[in-house]
Amino acid sequence: IINNLKLIREKKKISQSELAALLEVSRQTINGIEKNKYNPSLQLALKIAYYLNTPLEDIFQW
Score class of each variant (00 low, 15 high):
1 I>T: 10
45 A>I: 05
19 L>C: 04
3 N>D: 02
57 E>F: 07
12 K>N: 11
57 E>T: 12
1 I>V: 12
53 N>W: 04
46 L>I: 13
52 L>I: 03
9 R>K: 01
5 L>T: 03
11 K>N: 11
21 A>L: 12
39 N>T: 15
44 L>C: 05
16 Q>L: 12
15 S>T: 14
13 K>W: 06
27 R>D: 10
27 R>C: 10
44 L>W: 03
28 Q>S: 13
21 A>W: 07
17 S>L: 11
12 K>W: 04
2 I>Y: 10
49 A>L: 02
30 I>R: 02
26 S>T: 10
15 S>Y: 10
55 P>M: 07
32 G>C: 15
53 N>K: 11
27 R>L: 15
12 K>S: 10
22 L>N: 08
30 I>L: 13
29 T>H: 10
7 L>A: 15
38 Y>S: 07
38 Y>D: 05
40 P>R: 01
29 T>S: 08
5 L>D: 02
50 Y>W: 09
27 R>Q: 15
35 K>L: 14
61 Q>T: 09
49 A>G: 06
56 L>H: 03
61 Q>H: 13
36 N>K: 11
23 L>P: 00
19 L>D: 00
54 T>R: 04
26 S>D: 13
11 K>V: 08
31 N>R: 13
6 K>V: 06
61 Q>S: 13
50 Y>C: 11
52 L>V: 03
24 E>Q: 14
20 A>W: 03
57 E>A: 11
18 E>C: 08
52 L>Q: 00
13 K>S: 11
38 Y>I: 14
44 L>H: 03
2 I>M: 11
12 K>F: 05
13 K>V: 06
36 N>T: 06
37 K>V: 14
29 T>D: 06
30 I>A: 01
22 L>W: 13
48 I>G: 00
19 L>H: 02
43 Q>I: 13
42 L>E: 06
21 A>R: 14
30 I>Q: 01
37 K>N: 11
5 L>G: 01
40 P>S: 03
38 Y>V: 14
6 K>Q: 11
5 L>I: 09
48 I>F: 04
37 K>D: 11
48 I>T: 03
26 S>L: 04
4 N>S: 06
55 P>G: 06
53 N>E: 15
60 F>P: 02
61 Q>M: 09
7 L>D: 13
19 L>F: 08
26 S>E: 07
55 P>W: 04
14 I>G: 01
19 L>P: 00
29 T>V: 14
10 E>F: 06
40 P>L: 09
17 S>F: 12
35 K>V: 09
8 I>M: 06
59 I>M: 05
42 L>A: 06
56 L>A: 05
17 S>G: 13
16 Q>G: 04
24 E>Y: 07
30 I>Y: 05
16 Q>A: 08
56 L>W: 05
61 Q>C: 11
24 E>R: 12
51 Y>N: 05
58 D>V: 11
9 R>Y: 04
14 I>M: 15
10 E>W: 06
3 N>Y: 01
3 N>S: 05
3 N>F: 03
54 T>S: 08
12 K>G: 04
23 L>Y: 01
25 V>D: 02
35 K>D: 13
30 I>T: 01
39 N>D: 08
30 I>E: 03
9 R>F: 04
56 L>T: 04
25 V>T: 06
11 K>W: 07
23 L>F: 02
8 I>H: 07
5 L>R: 00
